[in-house]
Amino acid sequence: MVSKMRKINVMEHELVPEHHLISEEEEKKLLQDLGTEKESLPKIKRNDPAIKMLERIYGPIRPGRVIKIIRKSPTSGKYIAYRVVTEE
């Protein structure tokens, strides 16, 4: 028998970096700077626990949106990566 369950915020866990939803204008600028298309970006699934957490803040996040991830990097301190949301 377990004790009371509580809801956890996965974003607080050490292993999970900061996830942010970027706006469509920012998306355009990003793709322009990188000189590439959305399909070339690394992906993240719609039902990823971090995305589900973001949805509680921003509302539903459709596939095709881009997430900005700020990682704590062992080599450079701070590192910014992007992932494009895909279907489950």
Binding site: V10, H13, L15, V16, P17, H19, I44, K45, D48, P49, A50, I51, I69, R71, R83
Partner: peptide, 12 residues
């Protein structure tokens, strides 16, 4: 870790 915390956590 992937299922509970997500793909970035799994990567780490």
């Amino acid at each position: 870790i992937y299922e509970v915390l997500g793909v970035e956590a799994a990567r780490n």
